[in-house]
């Protein structure tokens, strides 16, 4: 069994454990009742999205310093996976919002800044597909760094702009212990899933590169 497969297996097991803990162990919140259980995977996906864009940020810096293809590839695959986690955040969020706030969407600080963050990284992928080989690596690395500056803004948006609908950052720490355990397990499971997808996707990019190199050699 390879390291990627092992991490994949671990993340699958932990995801099942997380679902079991969320539905059987974590107590039911009295305002939102069952709908509150969306929280565990919604918030964990958002945190994993931050992690993914954080990896893009670090890899982009490393690429600009060392100019190694490896760092550029890691930045690219991490961005792609981060966007997938963003899709989870932006689909589970409105389901929660529809029940809690009676609306699918609201232009409040947290939602708006998170959407800007997500769109910035979609722009990263568009930029890569639009530019020539060397240019795209440098320009996308710059965008990967600039885009990450929005992460702390998203995280602290509730404190920065008052009057939003999201609770502040301290709410998670005030949860009952069963809810905190369920949330932490969900977060760990999704982090492992991110790691698995990163390694798997990185391998795909390596094969692609190998293929392109052989094709290039054949043409020459």
């Amino acid at each position: 069994m390879t390291r990627t497969q092992l991490i994949g297996l671990l993340s699958a097991i932990l995801l099942f454990v997380a679902i079991y803990v969320v539905f059987s162990f974590a107590e039911i919140e009295m305002t939102m009742l069952e709908v509150q259980k969306i929280f565990y995977f919604h918030i964990s996906s958002a945190f994993t999205l931050f992690l993914a864009f954080g990896v893009t940020f670090i890899s982009s810096i490393l690429y600009l310093i060392k100019r190694r293809d490896k760092h550029d590839t890691i930045a690219l695959v991490s961005t792609e996976i981060g966007i997938v986690f963003g899709v989870v955040v932006f689909t589970t969020g409105p389901i929660w919002a529809r029940y809690a706030w009676n609306t699918w969407w609201n232009w409040e600080p947290r939602l708006t800044s998170a959407l800007i963050l997500w769109l910035t990284y979609i722009g990263y992928l568009i930029l890569r597909s639009a530019l020539a080989e060397e240019k795209k690596r440098v320009y996308s690395a710059v965008l990967g760094i600039i885009g990450f500056l929005n992460v702390p803004i998203v995280y602290f948006s509730v404190e920065l702009w008052q009057g939003g609908l999201h609770p502040d950052t301290s709410t998670k720490m005030n949860l009952p212990s069963t809810m905190q355990i369920a949330w932490l397990i969900s977060w760990l499971a999704l982090t492992l899933l991110y790691l698995f997808l990163l390694m798997f996707r990185y391998r795909t990019e390596q094969i692609k590169l190998e293929l392109e190199t052989i094709q290039h050699q054949q043409m020459n």
């Binding site: 069952e34 969306i38 995977f41 689909t91 589970t92 389901i95 929660w96």
Partner: peptide, 26 residues
């Protein structure tokens, strides 16, 4: 409760669907 469960099941189904489709695509 039925209404609440509809919201809950939809959210979890979507999460499962997104990750599965992406994994299969990869």
């Amino acid at each position: 409760q039925k209404k609440r469960l509809k919201f809950l099941v939809s959210a979890y189904f979507i999460i499962w669907l997104i990750f599965s489709l992406y994994a299969l695509h990869l």
